[in-house]
Each structure stands twice: as structure tokens, then as C-alpha cells.
Design a protein around this nucleic acid. Structure first.
Lengths: 336, 336
DNA sequence: CTGAAAGCGCTAACAC
DNA sequence: GTGTTAGCGCTTTCAG
């Protein structure tokens, strides 16, 4: 068993209150007493038990974070942002992975509350209002990050997806692409962020006097881009498409993989762009032109928000929008 | 403030011990009392405070994990393995990222101990004995995962790197590659796992009557493979190399990127293989032939080990070796 | 400036 | 079966 405050007090021949005062610098202590205490602490290698401390102060210095899957690189970036800011204020992170199970997410919220976390950040990929309800019940500060769904009335941080999408279309047009196909992951756009993205795309195309063409793949993973390659290819050929705008980098990469396996070259034969700027986007060849969703910043901003709320500032429930950035790389060919 | 055990006791008109008994199922309770307690719990939405519970039971149900960078996909896989096994036994994870700082790792160990974690798993990329010393001081169960360095006398889990390396060489020879270049990340091999890998490579080559050629790049990241592309290319040309065996998938991918940018095709012009089987290896084109280091399993096995030790089993300090697996994909050309 | 004492929310003897 | 009580290790009044 490691040393307790009592042991230190005994060795230093002072009361435990005095020890507590020196370790917390909470009240003046005579130089003499402080010296003795410090010496005792050093000799015993004493470290305060945070559990006991938390029990009385009601501050666990813990933030719970529920993610879909830490194996997704964008999720990892969000977590990095959260942790880094947390560290600055002595907060630790307890990590839970839900792998898309709503039930698991709700269970984790409860579990985290029992562990007395001071705030919760969720980086989810599911569509649900139950989570928000469940968490509101505990009235603990929280932020709900979701790159796919639009969970209403939930504090979150994102970019202006409509603007971003239009910006991409403009860029494609500038490089001479008149027929650009949009690949979406969901047919039912209603509650998703896709709604804004498709809006931006459509507006952009219409503005230029073009005709929007969209194709759904029913998923947002690399496999979905790959497995729907044939379908996309058909759409490309049928409409003389020269550039395809995928709603997620993963789909774009899956598609390029499919094209690669078919002997079709990107961007020589067809241009492909993504959305998100996951880390793979710049590693992959050809390097992917895409819209940057600053995941690290999403995490960092979310954490800052939680911290503010913990410190009593009134929570700003509004959606925070970070600047839009178009990353030009090499998966688009200039066909002017 | 949320309800406490006292509130429940009062509402149910029983003592707090009875409440404690029903929530822990620790001792028989009359059906009548149980019913009342359950009802009260339900009405109040009572959830036991884990902090208070931990203080008395001395079980935090927390495992600390210190990683280099969760943004590395292999690290994320390790964490997944740890978490998944942990969940099965009601353990939560508190995550700390050191970004390669030895000082940070040591600080985190202390911090985690203060949080009363019951075990620590480190997935580090640095070479140090201080960490092991520091952690031994606290005599808490721990496992030290490191895919680069060989930290002596530290419980760990790995694969038989020498065998793996030889296996790769054999495979390359079978496909007709007589001149295979080994790309290592470190010049000073002594304390690294590279020692075994190079040993396996050298033995393999020598067995076949070939001549080992090794080239160092001074790092194990994608950039290192990329930035040393010219150097590697020279070695290839000078020695009529047909296959290059990179000590890490990252280097292999960096190298293939360099080659791609130079217009050199893999595997048509030269074959390249890696080591690790990071998730990128199967996403990348060409799909990378490599040695699988089962990261998820590393994490899972490490966690199992910690759990055993927590449950009083005598710790097995030996290195655990998981089976070697060669993953044949498409970055090697059959030149027979 | 310092110590005694109460108490955070809970578990675990210990009596009854 | 059930209640009383003594802590777990710490912070924080409250006297002095």
C-alpha cells in the first residue's frame, strides 16, 4: 500500500490539514512546517490519491469520450484534439468505443456518469435523438460530433458544408469539368449532413448552367466506394462525366481503387475528389483533392467548449462552424 | 446533485446497508425489501457513485494506457484490442498520448497511479529503461508494447521477428528474387527489434547463397521512406536489386510513393514488401505484401495478462510470441 | 498559522 | 435478514 496523507502527517509531525494545505497551496503554512511536510512527502514518495480527492471535491478531472471506432483515422484525430486541450487543464480522457451501437452509446453515457466524468464528448456515426435525450437527463456538459448526421438541437462543431460543397464544384468547373457526378452515401438525405452538401453541389452546378447527377452507394466506407465501382462507372459513361465528387474521402479512395483495378487511371482518365481530408488522402496516390474537415480542431474546440461549461460559463448550444478549406492535390486533371 | 444511497434508503424505508446489498447482490435480502429498494432506485434514477465505491473497495476498474500517438493506425488497433477485452471485465480505459516524450510517459505513469488505475499498458516507440524502472516502483501490473525497441526484462507481446524476416526472404526467393535489399530504419541496431529482423534477413539470404545488402533511412515513417527514395534507388540500381524488403510498412509505402512520383512502377519495375500489416497496407495500391504483426491481438493479449495479474495470478514476465503470418498481396512480381 | 472534526458516498464487518 | 458503525483518503469548515 502506498503512503497516505496520514503517514506524511505523522512523519512530518504536523496535522493532516497542514499536509493538505501544502499539497494544495490552499492556505498559508509556515516555512518551517512546509519544509517538514515536503521532506516527509519526498521520503515516502507520497502522491495524493485522486479518487479520495475526487470524492470530496466532486471533481474527477475526467472527460468521457464515446467514439464510433478509434481505428478510423478521423476519429483518432478528433481524440487527439480533445486530449491535447484536456491535458492543458489537467483533464484525463476515458475512452469508450461503440462500434455503431446506439445501445452501447447509451450504456456508456451511464457508465461514464457513474465514473463521475465532468463532461462527455461523443464522436458518433449514428443517427439518433436518444443519445441527446439520455445525456441531457444527466445535465453534464457535452458536445456531439457527427460527420454524417445532423442531430438537431445538440451542441456541435462542424464546417459550413453547403459552402464547402459549392466551392468544390466551382473549382472543378474552373478546371474545365462540366459534367460532375456527385456520389452520396445515403438515399434518405433528410436527417443527414448530406442534405447541405448536396444542396451546395446542386446550387453550384445549376449556377453554372449544368445538370446535377447524383449516385448513391449506401455506405461511407472504402468498401462502399469499391463495391459500387461498376455502378459509378456506368453513371460516368452514360453522362460523359469527367469528374466525380465523392461525399467522403473513403468512398473516393475505394472508387479510385476500383478504377485502378480496372486499369482506369485517375486523374488521367477521370478526376475524383473527396470530402474530409482524412490522413489517407495525402498519403494515397494520386494524392486526393478534397475538402478539409479539420478533425483535430473539431476535437479541440469541442473540448474547449466543455471546459468553459465546467467553469460555469453558460453553454453555447449553437453549432460552431470552422472555416472551409479546399485542398488542391493531384486527383483532378485540368481539362481546359 | 444526483441521488445517493442515503436517498434511496430513506425512500425505501430501509438502511443503507440493505440498499448496498441489493445493488451489489452481496448478501441475501428479503424479497419485500428488495422490491422496495428497486422501486426507490428506479424512482430516483439512482446510480452508484463509482468514485466512492472505488475509495472503499480499492478497485477503480480503470486501466491506464500510454501510447505514442493514437493517430498511428497500428496504435489504434492495439487500443481496440485492449479496450475490447477490458470491457468484458468491466474495465475502462484512460488514454494518454506521449508523442514520443519519455518525460511525458513517466509523468503519465505517476498521474495514472494517482488515479488509482489497476494496471498500465504502454504502447511506446521510444527506447528507455527508465519507464520500466518507474513503473516497477509502483508495482502495478503492466505490459510494455514496443514495435521498435527491445526493452529487456519487461513483459511484452510480439511475434518471432527473426522467423518472420526469414520467411519473407524465402518467399521472395521463391518468386525469383535473388538480389533483395533490406531497408532498415536505424543504424544502431543494438537495442532494437531490428536486430532480430536483420538477423532473419541475413540468414535467409546467406542460406540461399546470396549477398545481404542493407540500407538505412534513419526513421520509420512514411516520410522517411519517401525522402530516402533517391538513396534507395541508387542502391537498387547499383546492386541489380529486384525486390526491396522494408522493415516497416510505412517506409515501404513512402518508398512506393517516391517511386510512383518518379514514374517507376511497383511491382512491374521493382517489388517492394513491408512489415507490420498496418491497415493502410491493404488499402494502398498496389496492395502491400507484408508480415502481419497482429496489433489488435497484441493489445488483447496484453490486457488479458494484466487482468490475470490483477486477479492474483503470478505475473508471467516472459515475452509472449504470437504466430508469424506472411500476407501475400500484390506488391511483389513473380520473375521466374 | 494550525489542529480537530465533520463528512464526501459507499462497503463491510459486526451485532442483533 | 437487517441496521449500526467504522472507516477508505482526502478537503474544508471551525475554533483556537
Amino acid at each position: 500500500m502506498s503512503a497516505t496523507i496520514k503517514d506524511v502527517a505523522k512523519l512530518a509531525e504536523v496535522s493532516i490539514s497542514t499536509v493538505s494545505r501544502v499539497i494544495n497551496d490552499s492556505k498559508p503554512v509556515s516555512p518551517e512546517a512546509r519544509r517538514k511536510v515536503l521532506k516527509a512527502i519526498d521520503e515516502l514518495g507520497y502522491k495524493p490519491n485522486e479518487i479520495a480527492r475526487s470524492l470530496v471535491t466532486k471533481k474527477s478531472n475526467l472527460i468521457g469520450i464515446i467514439v464510433d471506432d478509434i481505428g478510423n483515422s478521423y476519429v483518432a484525430q478528433i481524440v487527439r484534439g480533445i486530449e491535447e486541450i484536456g491535458r492543458m487543464y489537467k483533464y484525463d480522457i476515458v475512452l469508450c468505443s461503440s462500434y455503431g451501437s446506439e445501445e452501447a452509446e447509451i450504456r456508456f453515457i451511464q457508465l461514464l456518469m457513474q465514473k463521475q466524468v465532468e463532461g462527455i464528448i461523443i464522436a458518433s456515426e449514428i443517427e439518433t435523438t436518444k443519445i441527446a435525450e439520455s445525456i441531457n437527463k444527466y445535465k453534464v456538459p457535452f458536445v456531439y460530433l457527427n460527420r454524417l448526421y445532423n442531430i438537431s438541437k445538440t451542441p456541435t462543431v462542424t464546417i459550413d458544408n453547403e459552402v464547402a460543397s459549392r466551392k468544390m464544384v466551382d473549382y472543378l468547373y474552373e478546371l474545365g469539368h462540366k459534367n460532375v457526378l456527385y456520389v452520396t452515401w445515403n438515399k434518405n438525405i433528410e436527417l443527414t449532413i448530406e442534405k447541405s452538401k448536396i444542396q451546395g453541389y446542386t446550387d453550384g452546378i445549376l449556377n453554372r448552367g449544368g445538370l446535377p447527377i447524383v449516385c448513391g452507394v449506401g455506405g461511407y466506407k472504402i468498401e462502399d466506394g469499391y463495391n459500387n465501382g461498376e455502378k459509378i462507372l456506368e453513371a460516368i459513361e452514360k453522362n460523359n462525366v469527367t469528374a466525380v465528387f465523392c461525399c467522403q474521402d473513403e468512398i473516393a479512395i475505394g472508387l479510385i481503387n476500383y478504377l485502378y483495378d480496372k486499369g482506369i487511371k485517375v486523374p488521367e482518365d477521370v478526376s475524383v475528389v473527396g470530402y474530409g481530408d482524412i490522413s489517407l488522402a495525402s498519403i494515397y496516390r494520386p494524392k486526393l483533392t478534397t475538402i478539409k474537415e479539420p478533425y483535430y480542431d473539431f476535437g479541440a474546440v469541442a473540448m474547449r467548449r466543455i471546459l468553459k461549461e465546467i467553469n460555469g460559463e453558460i453553454p453555447d448550444k449553437r453549432t460552431l462552424k470552422l472555416p472551409v478549406q479546399l485542398i488542391k492535390r493531384e486527383s483532378v486533371k485540368d481539362i481546359n
